[in-house]
Amino acid sequence: MLLINCPYCGERPEPEFVYGGQAHIARPTDPRACSDQQWADYLYLRDNVKGVHNERWRHTHGCGRFFNALRDTTTDRFLATYEVGHEPPATLKGAHS
């Protein structure tokens, strides 16, 4: 059971959270301008990282907020959690492969 640091509530056990898939995938602002391939990529194409992964979590059984996290998929270690709309902490950006 992971221990996850919700940016709004602090450390809470994993059962309070729901995983939300890869982070920083913005929905295209003008979908009509997307080719079919671009739209399919937005819908279905995700990284499958061995190492540091940018991902979303929702503190569903807590504050209900979505937030972003950097987690190492090989160790389950969280390098950071941060609010939606923010970039990953600058010091850790290089870690994102």
Partner: peptide
């Protein structure tokens, strides 16, 4: 409700 919250919190802030 989760989907609505997702869009409100992340896409249509």
């Amino acid at each position: 409700l989760g989907m609505m919250e997702d869009f409100l919190q992340t896409e249509w802030r």
